[in-house]
């Protein structure tokens, strides 16, 4: 089992709508991702990146094809079974933060633990630890409206991390940030990846993709190309 890839997609298609209005967003996606990988998903707008991420994040199911996560065929699970997978193994950073308004950073981060049934004390401890990882402990009591975009994105990442997930999925985590903040976020993701978390990230910018180990390029609902990233080379260069 451990020799299986963590994530395996076989002939995934996704059709939105039906009849004349039907639109096939994914037209047969095949790929597999190993544990510990850092994948950047790239491609033009509308090529199916978010659709794929939603399927990988067990938020959506493919119209056809097989999606194996840790050996389980996700496409045949019920809604609640997929929820359980999400709360146990997955952390999702959404396109555009998606924090609860009027709720403090710490409470936002604690939220996934609530649904795991952890005690208030445990939630607090883990929440502060996750905020510490993104360097936001001093802002624990602030609501999203009182935080900058970069800080909000880091709260969103802390929320995805707090359950110590196997996989971190991030849909354009730097889409709303300037390049300085973006690089901070990328450094954070790199650190997390080095600590053993498998990271999948959608990005439009080559500069950000450069942090990844693997780059998957989408076009028109299929995987056009899979490349190995430049990061290992950079690291070797830097240390050499």
């Amino acid at each position: 089992m451990s020799s299986d890839p963590l994530i395996q997609l076989e002939g995934i298609t996704k059709t939105f709508g039906s009849g004349d209005a039907a639109f096939q967003a994914l037209k047969g996606v095949d790929m597999s991702i190993e544990r510990g990988d850092f994948v950047a998903v790239m491609g033009p707008s509308g090529s199916g990146k978010s659709t794929t991420m939603n399927i990988l994040g067990c938020l959506d199911i493919p119209t056809s094809g097989i999606f194996r996560f840790r050996g389980t065929e996700v496409q045949s699970l019920t809604r609640d079974q997929r929820s359980l997978l999400r709360r146990r193994y997955l952390g999702f950073v959404f396109q555009g933060f998606n924090l609860l308004a009027r709720t403090t950073a710490l409470e936002n981060v604690e939220l996934p633990l609530l649904y795991r049934g952890e005690s208030k004390a445990e939630r607090r401890k883990a929440g502060l630890r996750a905020l510490d990882m993104v360097g936001l402990v001093p802002w624990a009591g602030h609501t999203p409206a009182e935080l900058s975009g970069g800080q909000q994105q880091r709260v969103a990442i802390a929320r995805a991390l707090v359950t110590q997930p196997d996989v971190l999925l991030a849909d354009e985590p730097t889409g709303n940030l300037d390049s300085e903040r973006s690089i901070e976020i990328m450094e954070l993701l790199t650190e997390l990846n080095q600590s053993g978390i498998t990271v999948l990230m959608v990005t439009h910018e080559e500069e950000m993709a450069a942090f990844a180990k693997t780059i998957v390029r989408f076009r028109d609902g299929v995987v056009e190309r899979i490349e190995s990233g430049t990061r290992s080379a950079q690291i070797t260069e830097a240390s050499g």
Binding site: G57, L59, R79, D80, S83, L84, R86, R87, R88, L90, F92, F94, N98, L99, L100, A101, L111, P112, Y115, R116, R159
Partner: peptide
């Protein structure tokens, strides 16, 4: 609706 979406996405069950 958005709040509900967030809760569901981070793993809340329908009954919760």
């Amino acid at each position: 609706t958005r709040e509900i979406g967030i809760r569901l996405a981070i793993g809340a069950l329908a009954k919760e």
